[in-house]
Design a protein around this nucleic acid. Structure first.
Lengths: 338, 338
DNA sequence: TTTTATAGTGTAAGCGCTTACAGTCAATTT
DNA sequence: AAATTGACTGTAAGCGCTTACACTATAAAA
């Protein structure tokens, strides 16, 4: 394929510095085991040759890579961006590197990416949500790959997770909505199939709805992918019925943003004609107009804690227990008292 | 650290299938060189053992990794998300994998990440913008690492780039703004230091401003990081002067979104009291209110072409020339004729 | 039938590193 | 002075894979 210019190796450095490869390796990884004189000599050789260690060789020989893999459903909207950024920053502080890939919400693809990352020697994995094929967990267990599940929480499960209770949070939001006088709800949920967070959120709404004595049949629900345009389209469907909803509760802020803008384009006033709620409290939620009432999730905190837990797990330290974070309802203009 | 369960290797597979490791390797990589019978036998062994190839070993032995590295300034806002997603999809189609890391707009960190990815055996690199230390380019050249620069375009340079002319685009937008009667402009630029895209965009505004016979001294410019809250804060500064601007041109949509919401919070009507423009046409631009007049960048197309170019480069095929993509001005409500 | 391809397989030499182990030598102890 | 220690350093055996090369059948050609 390519002209291969000579790339300096440990051997080259060793030769130039007139020491053994073992010594060079020590200079790079365990300075304290080497005399100051040797260290200087070696570093100079490294410098002059422009040597960079070959990561693959190192990982293979050392059987650890200081690399963490993360697989998120999508990079295309900001749902995971903030948490992941914090996750990465925390890892970096501890000299771990992050490899990210995205699964496009497809379990098959996710499973493949997991293998991919493990094959790459990831020391640990960050996965979103807990619902996946048992075979995947088996694989991870057999390989002894420490794994943290985030963005969801299942305290009773045997996996360590750092997240929040999607269901309870959504139930709480729904309680609030109903308290505020709304009786005609409509729901635009994410696609629940293969997405436990979406499923839990929907369940949370239903919990509240039933607890208030209403019947599930009277709760219109449509499922759509997490994209603003899906939210927009769904809105049009929902308002074409006889009894218009007084509030549309969305599975996340992205859907809600789509709803709000389409509503405005169609001449509806939010929240005077119709209220809208979201979930996640991403940037977008503050900047659409009217700003979204939503569930605030401490994304950065979650990312940070997930990183710490994972590293603890990898380094066999204590403190790797699951954590359930608190979320709260962020009231903004898109939801109105009736 | 961890109990190390036995992880099956090529040797194990070879033993179980009663063939040599070379044959197993062929079954995995060059099926056509192997008899159907052997293939079946081997695949069965692979299956029964739950074998997954060790990536590091493979990369080391084969001296190629089918991995592309990308370093973007940030994952935290959506500027790069869409293009990167398309980039990844295109790579995947050709069986290349993507490794992403972010440099937080710090050249030093970027340089480090470049070495990191190269050390990991990346077959090629995607970098944003062209402005970086010559030493970095030297390093890349010495190692023979094919590199594509995106989100910017410098046709005369020796590097291959897939992007658009930030300066010309912003100049065009500014021409439009001035044509629409605006004479009191104010600019919220990104931080231009170490960010050639931001610098070019600012230069584009200045080009137009001067071409229309105005003086640079009369063009208030402030630089802020690409965050909505910076845009919001900058807005407050800009309107505290005697002669309020009739339009605020922002270095990108993120800043503009911040401006628009803060303006509203402070009781300004956009665009009646003040117009606002952005750049990039990310999702956010459509969903803030009023929607942003901005420069539309074909992010997905750019990502796709960048991927194709890079692969061509790596595989020494033709067609790896730089491409400059067309952008256009997307008029929306945030900019008003005076 | 003998020669010559050809398809399929095995052998073994690395790829660039880490690290157990052994060795050297000067500084301390006894 | 001999023995012990400890600080450095070197030797060499892998880590799990790919691939050049050699080899063995079998089919095609002569």
């Amino acid at each position: 394929m390519h002209e291969t210019p000579h790339i300096p190796t440990l051997d080259d450095v060793a030769k130039v510095a007139a020491v053994s490869t073992a010594t060079v390796s020590r200079c790079l990884n365990e300075k304290q085991k080497v005399s100051a004189k040797t260290l200087a000599k070696v570093l100079e050789a490294v410098e002059s040759l422009g040597y960079t260690p070959n990561f693959n060789a190192r990982a293979m020989a050392a059987k650890q890579s200081r690399t963490i893999g993360a697989i998120i459903p999508t990079m295309e909207n900001a749902i995971f961006a903030r948490g992941l950024q914090a996750f990465q920053e925390t890892l970096l502080e501890q000299r771990y590197n992050l490899l990210v890939s995205s699964s496009a919400y497809q379990p098959k693809l996710e499973a493949q990416q997991i293998r991919e990352l493990v094959a790459r020697g990831a020391d640990g994995l960050l996965l979103i949500g807990y619902e996946r094929d048992e075979a995947v967990y088996d694989y991870l267990a057999r390989r002894g790959i420490p794994t943290v599940l985030a963005w969801a929480s299942k305290p009773d499960s045997r996996h360590v997770s750092v997240g929040f209770d999607n269901r309870a949070a959504m139930r709480q939001l729904t309680d609030r909505v109903i308290e505020m006088g709304h009786r005609q709800l409509a729901v635009i949920s994410g696609i629940v199939d293969g997405n436990d967070r979406a499923a839990e959120r929907l369940a949370g709404i239903q919990d509240s709805w039933q607890a208030h004595g209403f019947h599930l049949d009277d709760l219109p629900v449509i499922q759509r992918p997490y994209e603003t345009k899906s939210g927009a389209a769904a809105f049009e469907e929902l308002v074409q019925v006889d009894v218009k909803p007084t509030v549309i509760m969305c599975g996340n802020d992205v859907l809600a943003a789509g709803v709000v803008s389409r509503a405005r384009d169609l001449g509806f006033s939010v929240p005077d004609d119709i209220s809208v709620t979201g979930f996640d409290d991403i940037e977008l939620a503050k900047h659409v107009y009217p700003a979204l009432t939503t569930v605030h999730v401490p994304h950065r905190k979650m990312g940070r804690i997930a990183a710490d837990s994972l590293i603890n797990l990898i380094e066999d330290r204590e403190g790797e227990v699951s954590q359930q974070l608190d979320v709260f309802i962020q009231m903004r203009a898109s939801l109105k008292q009736l």
